[in-house]
Amino acid sequence: MHDHSDMWMPTDPPTWARLFTPHLDGWSWVAYLTVAALVAYLVGLARLRRAGVRWPWWRTLSFVTGAVSLFAVTGTELHGYSMVLFSVHMAQHMVLSMVSPLLLLLGSPVTMALRTLPRGRGTAGVPRALLLEALHSRFARFVSHPGFTIPLFIVSLYGVYFTPVFDDLMADPLGHQFMLAHFLVTGLLFFGPILGADPWPRTVGHAGRMLELLLPMPFHAFFGVAIMMAGSLVVETFANPPASWGVDPLADQNTAGAIAWSFGELPTVLVLAVVFFQWAGSEQRRNCTRERTIDRVGDAELDAYNARLRAMAAGRGA
Rank of each mutant, 00 (worst) to 15 (best):
G52V: 06
H79M: 05
G66M: 02
G159M: 02
E301I: 04
L104I: 06
G175P: 03
C288A: 15
P216Y: 03
V160E: 06
L189D: 08
F219T: 02
L189W: 09
Y161L: 15
L309E: 14
L272Q: 06
G187V: 05
H182Q: 13
S97Q: 13
Y32S: 05
A31I: 06
A221S: 12
A239H: 12
M7S: 13
R54L: 06
A124H: 12
Y32F: 12
P118N: 06
L309I: 15
D295W: 09
T116P: 00
M7F: 14
L114R: 03
T255A: 15
I227Q: 02
P218C: 04
A171Y: 03
N287G: 13
V88Q: 08
I259E: 01
L174I: 15
M217A: 10
T116Y: 00
S156W: 05
P193F: 11
G192T: 10
G224P: 01
Y32C: 05
L309D: 13
M229A: 15
F219D: 01
W279V: 05
R121Q: 14
Q253H: 03
A113Y: 00
A134S: 05
W27F: 08
H182T: 10
I194Y: 10
F222E: 10
T34P: 07
L174E: 12
V225R: 11
F20D: 03
L184I: 11
R316S: 07
V68F: 02
D6I: 08
T116W: 00
W29S: 10
G264N: 11
V160T: 10
G196P: 07
R50Y: 02
H93L: 03
V275C: 07
E265P: 04
R209M: 11
T34S: 14
S69M: 15
R59K: 15
S137E: 06
G315F: 12
V126Q: 09
L45T: 03
G52N: 08
A40D: 00
H176L: 10
H89D: 02
G298Y: 04
M112R: 03
H79Q: 09
A207N: 05
F86K: 04
F166E: 01
T149N: 03
W200F: 14
Q92N: 07
A31T: 07
V234I: 15
L169T: 02
G246V: 09
I259P: 00
V269S: 00
T21H: 04
G125F: 06
V297H: 14
A311Q: 13
T76V: 10
G26P: 01
A171Q: 08
R128Y: 10
T74N: 11
P199W: 10
A36H: 00
G44K: 01
H145Q: 06
R59C: 12
P216A: 00
R202A: 14
R296N: 11
R121S: 14
V297W: 14
P173D: 12
V95D: 01
V204T: 15
T15N: 12
R290N: 11
S62N: 11
R316I: 14
E212V: 07
V165T: 07
L174T: 14
